[in-house]
Computed example of a mutant assay.
Amino acid sequence: MTSSAQERRARILETVRALGSVRVVDLAESLGFPAVTVRRDVAALAQEGRLLRTHGSVALPDEEAGRGADGAERVLGMLVPTVGGYFDEVVAGASAAAAAAGARLILGIAPYEASDDRSQVERLLESDVDGLLLVPNWRPGEGIVESDWLAELPVPAVLVERRAAPASPAAGLDAVCSDHRHGVLLALHHLARLGHRSVLLAARDDTRTAHEVRAGYAEAVKLLGLTELPVVDVPRAGGGAAAVAEQIAAAARAGARAVLVHNDQDAIQLPPLLRTFGLGVPEDMALISYDDTFAALSAPPLTAVAPPKRAVGAGALELLVRRIAAGPELPVHHTELQPSLKVRSSCGGGNGGGA
């Protein structure tokens, strides 16, 4: 192989690392090489196992995508506020994507009540991570004040299930999120099709997801022409389910016959509590849960909005690997993935045994 060919093929690999999967014709145009020459080089690199060819496109083998320029395994850190619920699936998606890319994922936990995101990130950085997936413990409205330090991170970072405030230093970070407002719209549209003209919302107010659910409710009732009802505040700490059930029962006496509850943990407690007020689910009160972590295990099984948690984790990890390879040449990505609605029996309606 001539020196010229070596340099050309090195540039091909470098470009594919930066761009991810790319068409051969686009690769040739980007490099300024004749397409026939690039196809020949790509064929040689594929024969050596350094590139994958699929339907006119090329990409790195999974194991190389997760390695640095020196061939060493990439180590990626992930900060989450909790495990044992919603973020388990997000972490699982990121972990699977890391394994597919030949990278290693290490986990840090900064509990909601501790507010020590920065110290946990510093511990991850002490492990010589090449990049970070971050779920900061941002309360609604606090993104600008509490994100200054994110602009000083020494490694690339991708926000997960978080969107930075537009004027904050973190606004320049990549982000992969669920579109929770669309998820609420799915739930209310389903209930509207079942004939409900007003839907109650019972929700927390202490997380970014809760903030998006509340905002999505206000938008959806206007879009669908439903009657907007006062939101039932779900207490941050446990033990408030009975009070929530009492407020839902009061709304039922005023005519409400459907409720969306954020999140599964709170929704699952409601059917037996509502029975003490003479309300059955779904015959007297249609109920949809938001999260779909445990909703299928309820009695009755709950119709639920299911954010694409695993896909969010996987997409964030894959974007982080691309960011590490490409650096600032890759435009900032703010990606939203749409939730789906899992229809079960808690809404009535007779659709396949469920709502």
Rank of each mutant, 00 (worst) to 15 (best):
I106L: 14
S57I: 00
A164V: 12
L132M: 08
A72T: 15
D116K: 09
L133C: 07
E152Y: 03
R163T: 14
Y86P: 00
R104L: 13
I144N: 13
L133N: 00
A99W: 05
L105T: 04
E73S: 09
E142M: 02
V83E: 07
V58N: 04
A101S: 15
L76W: 00
A69C: 05
W138G: 01
I106Y: 06
A164G: 11
D148P: 00
L133D: 01
V75L: 10
V75E: 12
A72Q: 14
G131C: 01
W138T: 02
P81L: 05
R74E: 14
A97P: 06
S147P: 06
Y112D: 12
S115M: 10
L105A: 11
V91Q: 06
L105V: 07
E146L: 11
V121D: 06
A164S: 15
E63A: 13
P166I: 09
P61Q: 08
E73K: 08
Q120G: 00
L134S: 03
D62R: 12
P166C: 05
G71P: 03
L124G: 07
A59N: 08
V83I: 15
L105S: 03
G85K: 11
S115R: 14
E73Q: 14
R163V: 14
D148V: 15
V75I: 11
P136I: 02
D70T: 14
V90G: 05
A98M: 06
G84D: 04
A110T: 01
S95K: 04
G71E: 11
V135G: 00
G108N: 05
A165I: 00
G85D: 14
L150V: 08
A59P: 03
V145G: 14
E126S: 13
V158C: 08
R118W: 05
A101Y: 02
P140E: 07
Q120D: 04
F87K: 04
V135Q: 11
W149H: 10
V145D: 15
D148E: 15
R162F: 01
W138M: 10
A98Y: 02
R139N: 07
V91N: 03
G141Y: 01
Q120M: 14
P166S: 12
A100C: 05
L153Y: 06
D130G: 09
R123C: 07
A165T: 10
G93I: 04
A94T: 10
W138F: 14
W138P: 00
G131L: 04
L134K: 04
A110P: 01
E113L: 15
R74W: 09
V135K: 06
A69N: 08
T82L: 13
V158A: 09
E146Q: 14
A100Y: 02
G84A: 03
A100I: 02
S147L: 12
V158G: 06
A114W: 12
P136M: 08
V58E: 03
S119L: 11
W138C: 00
A69R: 13
G108W: 05
S115N: 13
P166F: 10
A114N: 13
G85Q: 11
F87I: 03
R163Y: 10
L60Y: 04
V129M: 12
P81A: 12
G102H: 03
I144S: 13
D117M: 07
A157C: 06
